[in-house]
Simulated scan of single mutants.
Amino acid sequence: MVHGLRDIFHRIGGVPGRLIFDNASGVGRRVNENVQMADLFLRFKAHYGFEVTFCNPYAGHEKGNVENKVGYFRRNFFVPLPTVTDMQAFNEELLGRCEADWQREHYKKGVPIHLLFEDDKNALLYLPRHPFAACRYARVKTDGYGKFSIDGKHFYSSSPEWAGREVTVRIGAHTVEPLLPSGEPITIHLRLFGKQRTDSVDVRTTLSRLLQNPGAWRNSQLRKAIPDLLREELDKLERTELKETLATMEQLSGRYGFDTALQAMEEATKLGRLTSANSIVLAARLASFEPEESPSVDLSVYDRMLEPVGGVKP
């Protein structure tokens, strides 16, 4: 919820002075007459400076208008039921559709909704200079493979050298990041949801373990993830050569990124020269290459040449 509210604030360019909530577990929990707000929401509230009001229990008349709006958006934006493969991309597209809907007239005031909203924006609070970091932190214990569990059923990889140890994990709405003691992420996973068990593995984190034990190459997740041509070439290498090639892959990944390292080594394989020197040169070239824009060419002179002359077509 905090992440969604933050996105809305920055989308509309300001912060409402007061937010009204009904039954939102992300905000807090009501015990009798008292509401205990969640720690993350309290920090979010302090960052943006808005006030909070909670609806009374069993008081449907306090939020009837909101329920009507929920029904309107459900009928107009979620029928037929959409298939969502990328939540962030879907949310961005949905926001655009909602803003396009503001062109219609308000049912009571007879004025386009976007004009009414412009008036409302004058009452918004200013945005802070920096957006709120919408995440929480947890200490977790990894298993013998360096994996840890979030939300009970969803498992994520850290790196082999962190197997059987405690790591700090930064958990956001869309990402899960195991962190080094310095605060840098070991890797970044897309956060997974649902009731079924899932496993998210970043094959890049297996490189260091493979360098210690190249014999595990055949059964590694990394072998399954790299391009077919490069995999076939690495399968042919002896243990010593394989270790040297994996060391080059790790070196290039740290300097230029994993995808660039794989692309460079695949290109070297196509050229028939998968060596450390060739891979390093190709990776540097790929990392620094910026395609030039094609120059604009006026072809109208050729069009005039092909025009009929004296009624005779060429």
Rank of each mutant, 00 (worst) to 15 (best):
E62W: 01
E267L: 14
E238V: 12
G257Y: 00
V84L: 04
A133E: 14
I186S: 01
K195S: 15
Y126E: 15
G146R: 00
G272M: 00
G17D: 07
A123Q: 10
D202R: 08
L252K: 02
W162I: 03
H154K: 01
F78D: 04
L282S: 08
A163I: 01
S149L: 06
T83R: 07
H174N: 12
G144P: 04
E266I: 00
L19S: 03
F44W: 10
E62M: 03
L125N: 04
K69F: 09
G164C: 12
E99P: 03
S288Y: 08
N278L: 07
R6M: 11
D22G: 07
R74L: 11
I150C: 11
Y145T: 03
I8K: 01
P16K: 06
I226W: 00
N122H: 13
N23R: 06
L271R: 13
R43A: 10
F148M: 02
Y256D: 13
R204I: 09
R104P: 04
T175Q: 15
N34E: 13
P227I: 06
Y302M: 13
T269A: 14
Y126G: 13
D199R: 13
F78M: 11
Y302W: 14
L95V: 03
L252A: 10
F148P: 02
H189E: 07
T168I: 14
E118N: 12
T269V: 07
R129Q: 14
S157H: 02
P181Y: 01
G13P: 04
K147Q: 15
P160M: 05
H130A: 11
A46N: 13
E177D: 01
A277S: 15
D303R: 11
G13F: 09
C98E: 07
D199L: 15
P160K: 02
E177A: 03
A264D: 01
P295G: 10
A268E: 01
R165A: 11
A59V: 04
N23E: 05
E92F: 05
G26L: 00
L274W: 00
R139I: 15
